[in-house]
Design a binder for these strands. Structure first.
Length: 153
DNA sequence: GCCAACGTTGGC
DNA sequence: GCCAACGTTGGC
């Protein structure tokens, strides 16, 4: 099983929004970065676990856990001129952007702040702790995922 | 709100 | 294909 970290801005869509969905499931669309796209399209598998991270807000850090319930498929919002993430250069016969569906597993009682993650000696590879990391979808090495899970539970 | 770091764009 | 300019991300 793989582990991933998805960033999201809670003002737009946070862990509470995910938990409030009727089936607690959400298509993770709007990712417009090629490296992240490749992960969504090629590498993220059914049943993989996803750390939900809140960015650009008062308390930044890991807030919850989700699982992948649908593997990479075409993100239809790229073709919709009305959509926020419309991409005029994307063609239906040659889609650029992909998404996966994730399902809420849990929200942690206490957020694990970014500063604390950075201070954990075991967390070295995770892109989140590296300088200037702007990836919104990133892999979490298994060993580091286990350290995070142990710290969160 | 500031600003450093980064990805993308487009002229050449 | 280079690279400067630009827009965006995201922590603080």
């Amino acid at each position: 099983m793989g582990y991933w970290l998805f960033k999201t801005e809670p003002d737009a869509f946070g862990i509470d929004d995910l938990a409030a969905r009727p089936d607690q499931t959400e298509p993770w669309d709007g990712v417009r970065n090629y490296q992240a796209r490749n992960f969504l399209r090629d590498d993220i598998k059914l049943g993989d676990q996803v750390f939900i991270y809140h960015s650009s807000c008062k308390n930044v850090g890991i807030v919850g856990l989700a699982e992948v319930v649908k593997e990479g498929y075409v993100d239809g919002s790229q073709f919709d001129p009305e959509a926020k993430y419309y991409d005029p250069k994307a063609k239906t016969e040659n889609p650029r952007w992909y998404r996966v569906d994730i399902k809420f597993i849990k929200k942690y009682a206490n957020l694990l702040p970014l500063a604390e993650i950075k201070a954990m000696p075991e967390i070295q590879e995770l892109a989140l702790v590296k300088k200037g990391a702007r990836l919104s979808v990133m892999p979490v090495p298994e060993q580091e995922a286990k350290v995070l899970l142990a710290r969160l539970d």
